[in-house]
Amino acid sequence: ALNRGDKVRIKRTESYWYGDVGTVASVEKSGILYPVIVRFDRVNYNGFSGSASGVNTNNFAENELELVQAAA
C-alpha cells in the first residue's frame, strides 16, 4: 500500500501528469474510488508555472500509480 510522502509515477494515460512523478499527500481509507491524493511540482494547464492558480494535486487509484521511492 502507498503511504504519505511516497514518490509515485503516474500511469493513467489520459492524465496531464502521465509519466510524471508526484508525492503522495494523503491516502483516504473510506473506500472511495480514487483514494490517493498526489501532489506535483508543476501545475496543470489551469494555471501558469509559478502561479497559485493552477491545480497541482489530483486523486488517483492505487493501480494507476507506480512506487518510485518509499517515504523515509
Score class of each variant (00 low, 15 high):
Ala1Gln: 12
Ala1Asp: 07
Ala1Ile: 11
Ala1Tyr: 13
Ala1Phe: 13
Leu2Ile: 09
Asn3Leu: 09
Asn3Thr: 14
Asn3Ala: 12
Arg4Pro: 12
Arg4Asp: 04
Arg4Glu: 13
Arg4Phe: 06
Arg4Ser: 08
Gly5Trp: 04
Gly5Ser: 01
Gly5His: 04
Gly5Lys: 03
Gly5Met: 01
Gly5Pro: 00
Asp6Ile: 03
Asp6Ser: 04
Lys7Val: 09
Lys7Gln: 10
Lys7Gly: 00
Lys7Tyr: 06
Val8Ile: 01
Val8Asp: 03
Val8His: 02
Val8Glu: 01
Val8Met: 02
Arg9His: 03
Arg9Lys: 09
Arg9Val: 08
Arg9Glu: 03
Ile10Gly: 00
Ile10Gln: 01
Ile10Tyr: 02
Ile10Ser: 01
Ile10Trp: 02
Ile10Asn: 03
Lys11Ala: 06
Lys11Ile: 12
Lys11Asn: 08
Lys11Met: 14
Arg12Ala: 06
Arg12His: 04
Arg12Gln: 05
Arg12Asn: 11
Arg12Thr: 06
Arg12Leu: 05
Arg12Met: 09
Arg12Glu: 03
Arg12Trp: 04
Arg12Val: 06
Arg12Cys: 05
Thr13His: 09
Thr13Tyr: 10
Thr13Asn: 07
Thr13Phe: 13
Glu14Ala: 14
Glu14Gly: 13
Glu14Gln: 10
Ser15Gln: 01
Ser15Met: 01
Ser15Asn: 03
Tyr16Trp: 08
Tyr16His: 05
Tyr16Ala: 05
Tyr16Thr: 03
Trp17Ser: 01
Trp17Tyr: 05
Tyr18Phe: 09
Gly19Pro: 01
Gly19Met: 12
Gly19Thr: 03
Asp20Phe: 09
Asp20His: 07
Asp20Ala: 07
Asp20Leu: 09
Asp20Trp: 10
Val21Pro: 01
Val21Phe: 04
Val21Gly: 01
Gly22Lys: 00
Gly22Met: 02
Gly22Pro: 03
Thr23Ser: 04
Val24Pro: 01
Ala25Asp: 14
Ala25Cys: 15
Ala25Phe: 13
Ala25Leu: 15
Ser26Met: 08
Ser26Gly: 12
Ser26Gln: 11
Val27Met: 05
Val27Ile: 10
Val27Glu: 01
Glu28Trp: 06
Glu28Ser: 12
Glu28Asn: 10
Lys29Ile: 09
Lys29Arg: 13
Lys29Cys: 11
Lys29Pro: 11
Ser30Phe: 09
Ser30Gly: 11
Ser30Ala: 11
Ser30Cys: 08
Ser30Met: 07
Ser30Leu: 07
Ser30Pro: 10
Gly31Gln: 13
Gly31Glu: 12
Gly31Asp: 12
Gly31His: 11
Ile32Met: 11
Ile32Ala: 14
Ile32Ser: 13
Leu33Cys: 11
Leu33Ala: 13
Leu33Asn: 09
Tyr34Pro: 05
Tyr34Thr: 06
Tyr34Lys: 10
Tyr34Gln: 07
Tyr34His: 12
Tyr34Phe: 12
Pro35Ile: 14
Pro35Trp: 14
Val36Asn: 01
Val36Arg: 00
Val36Gly: 00
Val36Thr: 00
Ile37Arg: 12
Ile37Ala: 07
Ile37Asn: 06
Val38His: 00
Val38Glu: 00
Val38Thr: 00
Val38Ile: 04
Arg39Val: 14
Arg39Tyr: 10
Arg39His: 07
Arg39Ser: 08
Arg39Asp: 03
Phe40Gln: 00
Phe40Gly: 00
Asp41Ala: 09
Asp41Ile: 11
Asp41His: 13
Asp41Lys: 09
Asp41Leu: 12
Asp41Phe: 13
Asp41Trp: 09
Arg42Glu: 07
Arg42Thr: 06
Arg42Asp: 05
Arg42Ala: 05
Val43Thr: 09
Val43Glu: 08
Val43Ala: 06
Val43Met: 09
Asn44Gly: 04
Asn44His: 11
Tyr45Val: 15
Tyr45Leu: 15
Asn46Val: 07
Gly47Pro: 15
Gly47Phe: 07
Phe48Ser: 14
Phe48Leu: 11
Ser49Cys: 15
Ser49Leu: 11
Ser49Phe: 10
Ser49Ile: 14
Ser49Asn: 12
Ser49Pro: 15
Gly50Pro: 08
Gly50Tyr: 07
Gly50Ala: 10
Gly50Glu: 09
Ser51Ile: 09
Ser51His: 07
Ala52Ser: 11
Ala52Trp: 10
Ala52Glu: 12
Ala52Met: 09
Ala52Pro: 11
Ser53Pro: 10
Gly54Cys: 15
Gly54Asp: 05
Val55Ala: 06
Val55Gly: 05
Val55Pro: 05
Val55His: 09
Asn56Tyr: 11
Asn56Thr: 07
Asn56Arg: 08
Asn56Phe: 08
Asn56Gln: 07
Asn56Glu: 06
Asn56Cys: 15
Asn56Trp: 09
Asn56Pro: 04
Thr57Trp: 14
Thr57Tyr: 13
Thr57Cys: 14
Thr57Ala: 08
Thr57Arg: 05
Asn58Leu: 06
Asn58Gly: 15
Asn58Asp: 15
Asn59Tyr: 09
Asn59Thr: 08
Asn59Cys: 14
Phe60Leu: 02
Phe60His: 01
Phe60Thr: 01
Ala61Trp: 05
Ala61Val: 03
Ala61Gln: 07
Ala61Asp: 07
Glu62Lys: 06
Glu62Pro: 11
Glu62Trp: 13
Glu62Val: 15
Glu62Met: 14
Glu62Tyr: 14
Glu62Gly: 06
Glu62Thr: 10
Glu62Cys: 12
Asn63Thr: 13
Asn63Pro: 05
Asn63Val: 08
Asn63Asp: 14
Asn63Ala: 11
Asn63Ile: 09
Glu64Ala: 01
Glu64Gly: 01
Leu65Ser: 03
Leu65Met: 02
Glu66Tyr: 05
Glu66Phe: 04
Glu66Pro: 03
Glu66Leu: 05
Leu67Tyr: 04
Leu67Thr: 02
Leu67Ala: 02
Leu67Asp: 00
Leu67Val: 06
Leu67Phe: 07
Leu67Trp: 04
Val68Cys: 06
Val68Asn: 02
Val68Pro: 01
Val68Gln: 03
Gln69Asp: 08
Gln69His: 09
Gln69Phe: 09
Gln69Thr: 11
Gln69Tyr: 09
Gln69Ser: 10
Gln69Glu: 14
Gln69Ile: 10
Ala70Asp: 08
Ala70Thr: 08
Ala70Val: 11
Ala70Trp: 08
Ala70Tyr: 13
Ala71Pro: 07
Ala72Gln: 12
Ala72Glu: 14
